[in-house]
Amino acid sequence: MHFDGTFSIRAPRKDVFDVLIDPKQISRCMPDLQKLDVKSKEEFTAVVRAGVSFIKGDFTLNFRLVESEPPTHAKLVARGSGIGSAVDLETTIDLSDSGDGGTLMKWQAEAKVGGRIASVGQRLLSSQAQKIITQLFECLRDKFGTGS
């Protein structure tokens, strides 16, 4: 499943970038965060409660920052499992100046979900994943107070 979006943020690129690579800040935008374990600047584990329809449960997601070119580009990959399912997530973020002192953030996410959730919740999966991922990025945007 592929998702992407673009929005502008009224904050300088560097500030935006620092938030994006800070596990504590990102994890606060994750839906129903149960637990966060920051191992290093590049690695953290988050336990989130998620699901589709009646199949809900905890997912343990191991995040790794695999590409970081401050303050323009970052790539974060996550692999996780829970409730008989597996999730592979790859997100890329590219920042550029929006011209008015703000930042234009272009994001894309490639998600692969397997196991029970994918199989049982197939019809709802894509919209549910879209919802979670979009919320996450909107939350990040809102951290800067404004945006469009």
């Binding site: 692969k112 397997g114 994918a118 199989s119 197939q122 019809r123």
Partner: peptide, 14 residues
Amino acid sequence: YDEDGQLKSSTLVD
């Protein structure tokens, strides 16, 4: 199956 090899009809709903 979907393109990832996940069965799309694994309950009697589907």
